[in-house]
Every structure is written in C-alpha cells, then in structure tokens.
C-alpha cells in the first residue's frame, strides 16, 4: 500500500522533470519539423546535422561496414526529402529516423544474405561499452569492468538492443515498441527479463561491497 504511495509521488516528480528535459529538447525539433514539412530546406539541414552522428553510431550496431551504414543514411535522408509533404504526422523524430535506418539496413541484409548472414540467423545487435580510462587505473576497477562485460555478454542480442534504446538513447517505451515492432506488454516483459538477467549475473559475480563503499564515497564527494 505504502509502495503505491511512493510510486504515485514518484510519477508526479517524473512527469514534471521529464517534460522539462525532453520537452525543451523536442520542442525545438517540432518547430523545425513543421518548417521542414512545409518546404524549408534549412530545417532539413538542421535534422541532418543534429542526427547524422547518432544515426551512424546506431547503424554501426548492426554491421561493421561503414560504407553500408553511410549509404543507408543517404537513402534515409533522400527518402525523407521526397516524402516530406506526407510526414506532417511524425512527432518522434529521432525514433522515426532510427526506424527508417533500421529498415534500410534490413532491406540490404535481406537482399545480400550471403554477404551479411555468414553464420548467423539475423544481424546481431552488439554493444561495446566504454572503458573510462580514468577509472581503470586500479586493479579493482579492472575487475569491475570485467564484471560489466560479463553481464553484457550474458544478454541476448534482443536484450542488448532494448538496453541500448532504453539506457543509452534514453528513449520512451512507446518509441521502443515501434523500433522493435513489438507491443507494449512484450516490451515490458523483455525489459523485465533483461533486468532479471543483469541482476542474476551481478549477484553471481560476487560481492564487491568494498569497492561499492569506495565508489559511494566518490559519489558523495561530488
């Protein structure tokens, strides 16, 4: 019961703050999108400039072929330009671009199965995590990094993909649903399973309380 209270309070906080952060951010996009669909080429350049890096990085999750990813980004933007009178309804721009790029890539993968499907069922989504160099100075830190790697390795490609959207791109659940072509409930389940897996691997890999305590003191100092 008291748990309920906690959540409702938490939700209120969440909404105001989230609308603050994402609201500002997407408001700018919405204004430019409006301009773009009514024929403004500057707004078109704005979206290219804003999203080309993140799109490239996203595309590289599916393949290591840089030129292929660039070709697909080319096609995404050319199509965007030619379809623009019909795009008035789009409101989650980043998600829309991600979906378009994923579709372009998958079309190529389908076409050139021999090249891209050598020994896998489907294109694998992979995450490399950053090695924050200032943190791995100590052996203990290296241990910690290894542990994270083990956790990530234990995830299926699909779980990695959802982690990427949720914890790296910070996307909303409904955006992820569209990207992964699954319904809300399945997405919830997928995230639940991923978290369980993370937790399990985390527990298995042993207790690092000592390290945690040290890390906490760093956080407190901040």
């Amino acid at each position: 019961m008291s748990g309920q209270t906690k959540y409702s309070f938490c939700n209120k906080q969440k909404i105001t703050r989230k609308t603050m952060i994402r609201g500002l951010h997407s408001q700018e996009d919405t204004v430019f999108w409006e301009k773009f669909v009514s024929g403004d080429d500057e707004a078109y350049a704005y979206f290219y400039q804003k999203y080309v890096k993140v799109l490239f990085s996203y595309g590289m999750r599916f393949t290591s072929d840089r030129e292929l990813v660039k070709d697909c980004i080319h096609d995404v933007f050319v199509e965007l330009y030619s379809k623009r009178p019909n795009l008035r309804h789009v409101n989650q721009i980043q998600a829309y671009l991600f979906i378009s790029l994923k579709n372009e890539l998958y079309t190529i993968f389908q076409k050139d199965k021999i090249v891209y499907y050598i020994d896998m069922q489907e294109p694998v989504f992979c995450i490399d995590y950053t090695t924050e160099e200032h943190l791995i100075a100590e052996e203990q830190e290296i241990e910690e990094q290894k542990k994270l790697r083990r956790i990530l390795d234990s995830l299926t490609p699909r779980q990695k993909e959802v982690i990427y959207y949720r914890y790296i791109q910070g996307m909303e659940l409904d955006e992820i649903c569209k990207l992964m072509e699954i319904n809300y409930q399945s997405l919830q389940n997928l995230i639940q399973r991923s978290i369980k897996k993370i937790k399990k691997t985390f527990d298995e890999t042993g207790n690092t309380i000592q390290h945690v305590k040290k890390h906490m003191s760093i956080i407190k100092q901040k």
Partner: peptide, 24 residues
C-alpha cells in the same frame, strides 16, 4: 551499469559527414 554501458560512439569524421551531405 547505465554509465558504463554507454557505447563508444562510432567515429564519423566531419569530412565524411560533409561528403555524405553533398551526395544527399
């Protein structure tokens, strides 16, 4: 976990970005 899992952004140079833009 969330901080460390951040992917290393794949590097695309300004020249590549520009050439791609010209192609588009």
């Amino acid at each position: 976990f969330i901080r460390s899992v951040q992917v290393r952004p794949e590097f695309i140079s300004d020249a590549e970005i520009f050439n791609l833009w010209v192609d588009i």
